[in-house]
Design a protein around this nucleic acid. Sequence first.
DNA 1: TTTACTGCAAATAATTTGCAAAACT
DNA 2: AGTTTTGCAAATTATTTGCAGTAAA
Lengths: 141, 141
Amino acid sequence: MSHSDTIIAELRKRGYRITPQREMIIGAIAHSPKHITAEEIAVHLQEHTHAINIATIYRTLDWLWQEGFACRNDLSEGKTVYATLLHGPHVHLVCRKCNQVIDADIGVLSTLGNKLREKYGFDPNLDHFSIFGVCSECQDQ
Amino acid sequence: MSHSDTIIAELRKRGYRITPQREMIIGAIAHSPKHITAEEIAVHLQEHTHAINIATIYRTLDWLWQEGFACRNDLSEGKTVYATLLHGPHVHLVCRKCNQVIDADIGVLSTLGNKLREKYGFDPNLDHFSIFGVCSECQDQ
DNA sequence: TTTACTGCAAATAATTTGCAAAACT
DNA sequence: AGTTTTGCAAATTATTTGCAGTAAA
Protein backbone atom coordinates (compact mmCIF):
# COMPACT_ATOMS: atom_id res chain seq x y z
CA MET A 1 0.00 0.00 0.00
CA SER A 2 1.51 3.31 -1.09
CA HIS A 3 1.80 6.34 1.10
CA SER A 4 -1.15 8.07 -0.51
CA ASP A 5 -3.32 4.95 -0.18
CA THR A 6 -2.62 4.88 3.54
CA ILE A 7 -3.69 8.48 3.88
CA ILE A 8 -6.82 7.94 1.80
CA ALA A 9 -7.82 4.85 3.76
CA GLU A 10 -7.44 6.69 7.03
CA LEU A 11 -9.47 9.66 5.81
CA ARG A 12 -12.25 7.33 4.64
CA LYS A 13 -12.23 5.72 8.05
CA ARG A 14 -12.72 9.14 9.57
CA GLY A 15 -15.87 9.58 7.51
CA TYR A 16 -14.66 11.90 4.77
CA ARG A 17 -15.59 11.45 1.15
CA ILE A 18 -12.81 10.74 -1.28
CA THR A 19 -13.35 12.51 -4.58
CA PRO A 20 -11.15 12.17 -7.66
CA GLN A 21 -9.87 15.68 -6.97
CA ARG A 22 -8.82 14.78 -3.44
CA GLU A 23 -7.25 11.57 -4.66
CA MET A 24 -5.15 13.40 -7.21
CA ILE A 25 -4.09 16.13 -4.83
CA ILE A 26 -3.09 13.59 -2.20
CA GLY A 27 -1.18 11.66 -4.85
CA ALA A 28 0.65 14.78 -5.94
CA ILE A 29 1.70 15.85 -2.46
CA ALA A 30 2.57 12.33 -1.31
CA HIS A 31 4.87 11.69 -4.24
CA SER A 32 6.49 15.10 -4.33
CA PRO A 33 10.10 14.86 -3.17
CA LYS A 34 9.96 18.39 -1.85
CA HIS A 35 7.64 20.92 -0.31
CA ILE A 36 5.07 22.05 -2.80
CA THR A 37 2.75 25.01 -3.23
CA ALA A 38 -0.92 24.95 -4.22
CA GLU A 39 0.05 26.59 -7.49
CA GLU A 40 2.64 23.90 -8.25
CA ILE A 41 0.08 21.17 -7.64
CA ALA A 42 -2.33 22.92 -10.00
CA VAL A 43 0.28 23.04 -12.77
CA HIS A 44 1.28 19.44 -12.12
CA LEU A 45 -2.28 18.14 -12.26
CA GLN A 46 -3.12 20.08 -15.38
CA GLU A 47 -0.59 17.96 -17.22
CA HIS A 48 -2.47 14.79 -16.43
CA THR A 49 -6.12 15.61 -16.32
CA HIS A 50 -8.56 18.44 -16.61
CA ALA A 51 -7.72 21.34 -14.39
CA ILE A 52 -8.81 21.16 -10.81
CA ASN A 53 -9.97 24.44 -9.40
CA ILE A 54 -7.28 26.17 -7.37
CA ALA A 55 -9.74 26.79 -4.54
CA THR A 56 -10.25 23.06 -4.20
CA ILE A 57 -6.51 22.56 -3.96
CA TYR A 58 -6.25 25.16 -1.23
CA ARG A 59 -9.16 23.60 0.63
CA THR A 60 -7.77 20.09 0.31
CA LEU A 61 -4.28 21.08 1.47
CA ASP A 62 -5.69 22.88 4.44
CA TRP A 63 -7.84 19.86 5.25
CA LEU A 64 -4.86 17.48 5.05
CA TRP A 65 -3.00 19.78 7.38
CA GLN A 66 -5.91 19.95 9.84
CA GLU A 67 -6.18 16.18 9.81
CA GLY A 68 -2.48 15.83 10.50
CA PHE A 69 -1.36 14.34 7.20
CA ALA A 70 0.56 17.33 5.94
CA CYS A 71 2.77 20.01 7.32
CA ARG A 72 2.45 23.60 6.30
CA ASN A 73 5.21 26.18 6.24
CA ASP A 74 5.91 29.64 4.99
CA LEU A 75 9.31 29.08 3.53
CA SER A 76 9.76 31.21 0.51
CA GLU A 77 8.56 34.64 -0.40
CA GLY A 78 4.90 34.91 0.42
CA LYS A 79 3.92 31.40 -0.56
CA THR A 80 2.74 28.59 1.66
CA VAL A 81 4.27 25.17 1.04
CA TYR A 82 2.92 21.79 2.04
CA ALA A 83 4.39 18.29 2.40
CA THR A 84 3.24 14.98 3.77
CA LEU A 85 4.63 13.83 7.09
CA LEU A 86 6.49 10.94 5.55
CA HIS A 87 9.99 11.22 6.87
CA GLY A 88 11.56 11.35 10.28
CA PRO A 89 13.10 14.49 11.74
CA HIS A 90 14.95 16.48 9.12
CA VAL A 91 15.99 19.96 8.22
CA HIS A 92 14.82 21.96 5.24
CA LEU A 93 17.69 23.78 3.61
CA VAL A 94 16.10 26.63 1.74
CA CYS A 95 18.27 28.26 -0.91
CA ARG A 96 17.83 32.02 -0.96
CA LYS A 97 18.86 32.23 -4.58
CA CYS A 98 17.08 29.43 -6.42
CA ASN A 99 14.44 28.76 -3.75
CA GLN A 100 14.97 25.02 -3.88
CA VAL A 101 14.40 23.09 -0.68
CA ILE A 102 16.80 20.29 0.21
CA ASP A 103 15.81 17.79 2.87
CA ALA A 104 18.72 17.02 5.16
CA ASP A 105 19.09 14.42 7.89
CA ILE A 106 21.19 15.72 10.66
CA GLY A 107 22.46 13.93 13.74
CA VAL A 108 22.79 17.02 15.90
CA LEU A 109 19.05 17.47 16.04
CA SER A 110 18.38 15.50 19.20
CA THR A 111 21.14 17.35 21.03
CA LEU A 112 19.68 20.64 19.85
CA GLY A 113 16.20 19.61 20.99
CA ASN A 114 17.43 18.69 24.44
CA LYS A 115 19.31 21.96 24.84
CA LEU A 116 16.26 23.99 23.87
CA ARG A 117 14.10 22.11 26.36
CA GLU A 118 16.65 22.47 29.16
CA LYS A 119 17.59 26.09 28.70
CA TYR A 120 14.35 27.60 27.46
CA GLY A 121 11.60 25.14 28.38
CA PHE A 122 10.72 25.29 24.69
CA ASP A 123 9.31 22.16 23.11
CA PRO A 124 10.52 22.28 19.53
CA ASN A 125 8.92 20.54 16.60
CA LEU A 126 12.07 19.28 14.91
CA ASP A 127 10.23 17.16 12.36
CA HIS A 128 10.29 20.14 10.12
CA PHE A 129 12.38 23.16 10.42
CA SER A 130 14.10 25.42 8.01
CA ILE A 131 17.50 26.95 7.59
CA PHE A 132 18.09 29.57 4.95
CA GLY A 133 21.31 29.81 3.03
CA VAL A 134 22.88 29.22 -0.34
CA CYS A 135 22.95 25.79 -1.96
CA SER A 136 26.06 24.31 -3.59
CA GLU A 137 24.92 25.04 -7.16
CA CYS A 138 24.24 28.68 -6.46
CA GLN A 139 27.56 29.19 -4.71
CA ASP A 140 29.42 28.73 -7.97
CA GLN A 141 27.74 31.68 -9.62
CA MET B 1 25.98 55.84 19.68
CA SER B 2 22.86 53.70 19.64
CA HIS B 3 22.25 50.86 17.26
CA SER B 4 19.95 52.89 15.05
CA ASP B 5 22.44 55.77 14.92
CA THR B 6 25.09 53.38 13.67
CA ILE B 7 22.81 52.19 10.89
CA ILE B 8 21.81 55.72 9.96
CA ALA B 9 25.42 56.90 9.85
CA GLU B 10 26.40 54.04 7.60
CA LEU B 11 23.46 54.62 5.25
CA ARG B 12 24.37 58.32 5.01
CA LYS B 13 27.90 57.32 4.18
CA ARG B 14 26.55 55.20 1.37
CA GLY B 15 24.88 58.27 -0.10
CA TYR B 16 21.27 57.68 0.92
CA ARG B 17 19.06 60.42 2.23
CA ILE B 18 17.77 60.11 5.75
CA THR B 19 14.20 61.31 6.06
CA PRO B 20 12.20 61.54 9.29
CA GLN B 21 10.20 58.55 8.07
CA ARG B 22 13.29 56.45 7.60
CA GLU B 23 14.67 57.56 10.93
CA MET B 24 11.52 56.52 12.74
CA ILE B 25 11.26 53.19 10.97
CA ILE B 26 14.90 52.38 11.69
CA GLY B 27 14.35 53.39 15.31
CA ALA B 28 11.34 51.12 15.57
CA ILE B 29 13.00 48.07 14.13
CA ALA B 30 16.28 48.62 15.96
CA HIS B 31 14.59 48.84 19.34
CA SER B 32 12.12 46.07 18.83
CA PRO B 33 13.01 43.06 20.98
CA LYS B 34 11.44 40.74 18.46
CA HIS B 35 10.77 40.32 14.77
CA ILE B 36 8.29 42.86 13.58
CA THR B 37 5.94 43.24 10.62
CA ALA B 38 5.35 46.34 8.50
CA GLU B 39 1.87 46.55 9.98
CA GLU B 40 3.19 46.48 13.54
CA ILE B 41 5.60 49.28 12.77
CA ALA B 42 2.75 51.32 11.32
CA VAL B 43 0.66 50.89 14.46
CA HIS B 44 3.64 51.63 16.68
CA LEU B 45 4.56 54.82 14.83
CA GLN B 46 1.00 56.08 14.77
CA GLU B 47 1.14 56.32 18.54
CA HIS B 48 3.98 58.80 18.41
CA THR B 49 3.55 60.86 15.32
CA HIS B 50 1.41 61.31 12.27
CA ALA B 51 0.90 58.15 10.34
CA ILE B 52 3.57 57.12 7.91
CA ASN B 53 2.27 55.58 4.76
CA ILE B 54 2.43 51.81 4.83
CA ALA B 55 4.03 51.74 1.38
CA THR B 56 6.93 53.75 2.75
CA ILE B 57 7.36 51.27 5.56
CA TYR B 58 7.45 48.38 3.13
CA ARG B 59 9.92 50.22 0.93
CA THR B 60 12.15 51.14 3.84
CA LEU B 61 12.20 47.63 5.29
CA ASP B 62 13.05 46.17 1.93
CA TRP B 63 15.80 48.74 1.54
CA LEU B 64 17.27 47.94 4.96
CA TRP B 65 17.24 44.30 4.01
CA GLN B 66 18.93 44.97 0.65
CA GLU B 67 21.58 47.05 2.37
CA GLY B 68 22.23 44.26 4.85
CA PHE B 69 20.95 45.95 8.01
CA ALA B 70 17.89 43.80 8.50
CA CYS B 71 16.93 40.22 8.05
CA ARG B 72 13.66 39.20 6.52
CA ASN B 73 11.71 36.03 7.23
CA ASP B 74 8.36 34.50 6.59
CA LEU B 75 7.65 33.18 10.05
CA SER B 76 3.99 33.37 10.71
CA GLU B 77 0.94 32.97 8.52
CA GLY B 78 1.40 35.02 5.40
CA LYS B 79 3.24 37.92 6.98
CA THR B 80 6.83 38.93 6.46
CA VAL B 81 8.81 39.87 9.56
CA TYR B 82 11.93 41.97 9.83
CA ALA B 83 14.64 42.49 12.45
CA THR B 84 17.99 44.24 12.63
CA LEU B 85 21.14 42.16 12.56
CA LEU B 86 22.13 43.18 16.04
CA HIS B 87 23.05 39.96 17.71
CA GLY B 88 25.39 37.14 16.93
CA PRO B 89 24.16 33.77 15.71
CA HIS B 90 20.97 32.77 17.42
CA VAL B 91 17.84 30.77 16.95
CA HIS B 92 14.31 32.10 16.83
CA LEU B 93 11.97 29.91 18.80
CA VAL B 94 8.56 30.59 17.35
CA CYS B 95 5.63 29.48 19.49
CA ARG B 96 2.87 27.97 17.40
CA LYS B 97 0.26 28.89 19.97
CA CYS B 98 1.00 32.44 21.08
CA ASN B 99 3.24 33.40 18.13
CA GLN B 100 5.87 34.91 20.39
CA VAL B 101 9.46 34.71 19.19
CA ILE B 102 12.16 33.92 21.72
CA ASP B 103 15.77 34.58 20.80
CA ALA B 104 18.00 31.72 21.92
CA ASP B 105 21.77 31.43 21.92
CA ILE B 106 22.80 27.93 21.19
CA GLY B 107 26.27 26.40 21.26
CA VAL B 108 25.53 23.61 18.82
CA LEU B 109 25.13 26.03 15.97
CA SER B 110 28.69 25.97 14.71
CA THR B 111 28.70 22.17 14.70
CA LEU B 112 25.45 22.20 12.78
CA GLY B 113 26.83 24.69 10.28
CA ASN B 114 29.91 22.57 9.66
CA LYS B 115 27.86 19.43 9.14
CA LEU B 116 25.61 21.12 6.62
CA ARG B 117 28.61 22.41 4.69
CA GLU B 118 30.36 19.02 4.74
CA LYS B 119 27.44 16.79 3.90
CA TYR B 120 25.37 19.02 1.62
CA GLY B 121 27.69 21.75 0.42
CA PHE B 122 25.04 24.11 1.76
CA ASP B 123 26.18 27.42 3.17
CA PRO B 124 23.68 28.21 5.89
CA ASN B 125 22.90 31.62 7.25
CA LEU B 126 22.79 30.74 10.92
CA ASP B 127 22.55 34.33 12.09
CA HIS B 128 18.83 33.92 11.96
CA PHE B 129 16.92 30.78 11.76
CA SER B 130 13.68 29.60 13.14
CA ILE B 131 12.38 26.60 14.95
CA PHE B 132 8.68 26.15 15.52
CA GLY B 133 7.31 24.61 18.68
CA VAL B 134 5.48 25.39 21.89
CA CYS B 135 6.86 27.80 24.47
CA SER B 136 6.93 27.06 28.19
CA GLU B 137 3.91 29.25 29.01
CA CYS B 138 1.73 27.62 26.39
CA GLN B 139 2.67 24.12 27.47
CA ASP B 140 0.84 24.56 30.75
CA GLN B 141 -2.44 25.16 29.05
C1' DT C 1 -31.35 10.46 -1.19
C1' DT C 2 -28.73 13.04 1.62
C1' DT C 3 -25.34 16.36 2.63
C1' DA C 4 -20.40 16.82 1.85
C1' DC C 5 -17.65 18.61 -1.86
C1' DT C 6 -16.59 21.33 -6.07
C1' DG C 7 -16.44 25.18 -9.27
C1' DC C 8 -16.97 29.80 -10.10
C1' DA C 9 -16.55 34.40 -9.18
C1' DA C 10 -16.20 37.81 -6.01
C1' DA C 11 -13.90 39.17 -1.49
C1' DT C 12 -9.70 39.67 1.47
C1' DA C 13 -5.13 40.48 2.89
C1' DA C 14 -0.40 41.48 2.24
C1' DT C 15 2.60 43.67 -0.63
C1' DT C 16 4.13 46.31 -4.76
C1' DT C 17 4.14 49.97 -8.18
C1' DG C 18 3.39 54.35 -11.10
C1' DC C 19 3.42 58.97 -10.81
C1' DA C 20 3.12 63.67 -9.27
C1' DA C 21 4.31 66.37 -5.20
C1' DA C 22 7.51 67.11 -1.32
C1' DA C 23 11.96 67.41 0.83
C1' DC C 24 16.87 65.87 1.77
C1' DT C 25 21.66 67.33 0.64
C1' DA D 1 18.67 73.09 -7.80
C1' DG D 2 18.53 68.59 -8.57
C1' DT D 3 17.52 64.13 -7.56
C1' DT D 4 15.79 61.01 -4.15
C1' DT D 5 11.98 59.82 -1.44
C1' DT D 6 7.09 60.05 -0.08
C1' DG D 7 2.07 59.64 -0.35
C1' DC D 8 -1.75 58.19 -2.62
C1' DA D 9 -4.37 55.18 -5.14
C1' DA D 10 -4.56 51.60 -8.17
C1' DA D 11 -2.44 47.00 -9.39
C1' DT D 12 -0.77 42.42 -8.10
C1' DT D 13 -0.41 38.10 -5.79
C1' DA D 14 -1.74 34.53 -2.69
C1' DT D 15 -5.48 32.82 -0.40
C1' DT D 16 -10.34 32.50 1.28
C1' DT D 17 -15.34 32.45 1.02
C1' DG D 18 -20.45 32.36 -0.39
C1' DC D 19 -23.44 29.97 -2.90
C1' DA D 20 -25.68 27.10 -6.19
C1' DG D 21 -24.91 22.89 -8.55
C1' DT D 22 -22.75 18.03 -8.46
C1' DA D 23 -21.67 13.69 -6.81
C1' DA D 24 -19.82 10.34 -3.08
C1' DA D 25 -21.82 7.20 0.22
